[in-house]
Design a binder for these strands. Structure first.
Length: 413
DNA sequence: TGTCCACTGGAACGTACGGCTT
DNA sequence: AAGCCGTACGTTCCAGTGGACA
């Protein structure tokens, strides 16, 4: 065995070997559905009551479920739907359920084809017109006696992408069906979703509404405790970590997903150190790590002009000039474009790009007035120098410019 | 008190592109 | 293959503006 194979052998064995920490890593993923959902009894009961009639072959009300990310909407919906399907199976009810994530599906076509496959209608991956697929869907429903409960997760994605034709058709489908019935459970974390909807669709869709409140710190703790018991081995000490994770997540938006991520990354850090104690320090490190990764990821995926604008901000702040006005940034931006052989955009557009960077949190900018000297946006870098440098060094086109000293800076004192 | 700077940000319009229909 | 449509991204034009300064 040569040296390299030995090294790999070691690395792989590390993964295969017994972990000090994890018993079941999956339990900390946010798509994991435990068989008990703490602090969501009420929501489960209400949703169960709404969907219940479908068990007896009756049409139930359409429901719209709202709430911010990580409030347990998807988990509750899946939980109830799964139980509903199990119960239907038990009593031989003609009930079918279908759970589709609209954002993951991507297009109306794929959402619809997922619905088709839930009632055993086969449609090709591509090639058919939407209307044709919908007709097949309807005629299949018409030929059988089925009560179909459709859960559309991240339903807002369906609207934003391409109007609301599919939703409109779906909400009206019962008018054209003689034997079967379709009920819709829509899940959205965009609270403005209702405004974007055609009022006719909205009124049909939201016969019932359930709003999910964010979790508070104590509730988050209960959730984490429950998951931790499944995920971690006996003897692993994690109480302090859980407290901190809950506190951090509660201070943000009461996002359980965030809390779980923190705990998972903290645990992985502890694991890598070969420890069986997940400390508060691990959580702080995890927080940094997650933030770092998020920023690095957004930086990487930025379009080229936004990158150059950001680099301009970076370079000017690096050379200790504070109070970057849009004019300064634009001048440096144009200079960089010249060096890189890229056609610069107009100042109007760059001003817009700065706003976009601001929304992403990569820069902070606010409009200030300098009286006689005009009115402009004052912009500062919103992320650590280190991260910007790190990411841009990996970028072939940006690499050479990271140490560039703009001539423009010499022309102003 | 009025002027005037250096922009901001809305609006209309141009262009490229991808997907769908014919 | 060709035409159509919606969307994304940019440009051009311009009215509007907060506050230092004369």
């Amino acid at each position: 065995m040569n040296k390299q194979i030995e090294i790999l052998e070691d690395v792989f064995n590390n993964f295969l070997g017994e972990s000090n920490i994890f018993k079941n890593r999956e339990a900390l993923r946010h798509d994991y559905i435990p068989d008990y959902l703490p602090h969501r009894e009420e929501e489960i009961r209400i949703l169960g009551q709404i969907l219940g009639p479908s068990l007896r072959g009756m049409l139930c009300s359409n429901v719209l479920v709202y709430g911010k990310t990580g409030t347990g909407k998807t988990a509750v919906a899946k939980f109830v739907i799964n139980r509903l399907a199990a119960k239907a199976n038990e009593i031989k009810s003609p009930l079918r359920v279908s759970f589709v994530n609209c954002r993951l599906a991507g297009t109306e076509y794929r959402v619809l084809s997922a619905l088709c496959s839930s009632i055993n209608v086969k449609v090709p991956f591509t090639g058919l017109a939407l209307g044709e697929v919908f007709d097949r869907f309807k005629s299949a429903l018409n030929s059988k006696r089925i009560v179909l409960v459709v859960a559309l997760d991240e339903i807002d994605a369906l609207i934003k992408e391409r109007g609301d034709t599919l939703l409109y058709e779906l909400t009206r489908i019962n008018e054209n069906l003689s034997k079967s019935k379709v009920s819709i459970l829509g899940i959205s974390n965009d609270l403005r979703f209702k405004d974007m909807l055609d009022p006719r669709v909205l009124s049909t869709l939201s016969e019932e509404e359930i709003v999910f409140r964010p979790y508070n710190a104590e509730e988050l703790q209960d959730i984490l405790k429950q998951r931790a018991e499944i995920a971690f081995k006996k003897g692993v000490s994690y109480e302090a970590a859980i407290k901190l994770c809950s506190a951090i997540a509660a201070a943000e938006h009461g996002d359980a997903r965030r809390a779980l991520d923190l705990l998972r990354v903290a645990a992985e850090l502890a694991e890598r150190e070969g420890k069986s104690i997940i400390s508060e320090d691990h959580v702080y490190q995890a927080q940094k790590r997650i933030e770092h990764d998020r920023v690095a990821e957004t930086l990487k995926t930025l379009p080229i002009h936004s990158k150059i604008v950001l680099l301009s901000v970076f370079l000017i702040s690096k050379h200790k000039r504070k109070g970057l006005m849009t004019g300064d940034i634009y001048n440096v931006y144009c200079e960089l474009c010249g060096e890189m052989n890229i056609n610069p955009l107009t100042q109007r557009r760059v001003s817009g790009l700065i706003n976009e960077l601001d929304v992403m949190g990569l820069v902070n900018s606010r409009v200030v007035s300098l009286g006689r000297y005009g009115r402009s946006k004052k912009t500062t870098l919103g992320v650590p120098f280190k991260v910007v440098k790190e990411v841009f060094l990996e970028d072939e086109r940006m690499r050479n410019m990271i140490n560039y000293v703009p001539k423009y800076l010499n022309s102003i004192h």
